[in-house]
């Protein structure tokens, strides 16, 4: 029934069906912006974590921001994040944190 109405009537429901078919993500799981893509190399698909590398998605933003600041200042035990954190501008770090904190 829902299908019939959606396809016949077009409109919002139809658009939603087509958007889903076209692979558009729902708003709550927006794809990672370019600046956050580098994180996905180690931190798992969508930032969900990989093995012993911790996940970033859905974490508290203030907690992530404090960790990044500590890595930049070399004040937190690290293997490689201290070397990476210093490569981002403040604005880039903020954009990446915004993205991961918003993810479910």
């Amino acid at each position: 029934m829902g299908w019939q109405r959606a396809i016949r009537g077009g409109g919002l429901a139809g658009a939603a069906v087509l958007a889903a078919l076209a692979g558009a993500a729902p708003a709550r799981s927006q794809p990672a912006p370019l600046v956050a893509q580098g994180c996905l190399g180690c931190h798992g698909p969508g930032g969900a974590g990989s093995g012993s590398v911790p996940g970033l998605a859905g974490r508290d933003r203030a907690e992530l921001a404090a960790a990044m600041a500590a890595f930049r200042a070399n004040e937190r035990p690290a293997t490689i994040m201290n070397r990476i954190a210093r490569g981002y501008t403040e604005a880039e770090t903020a954009a990446a944190l915004d993205h991961f904190a918003r993810r479910p």
Binding site: L40, G41, C42, H43, S50, G51, S52, V53, I80
Partner: peptide
């Protein structure tokens, strides 16, 4: 160990 996690992560990506 992180190298293994990197491999799993990037190949999943």
């Amino acid at each position: 160990r992180y190298a293994d996690d990197w491999y799993a992560s990037i190949t999943a990506d």
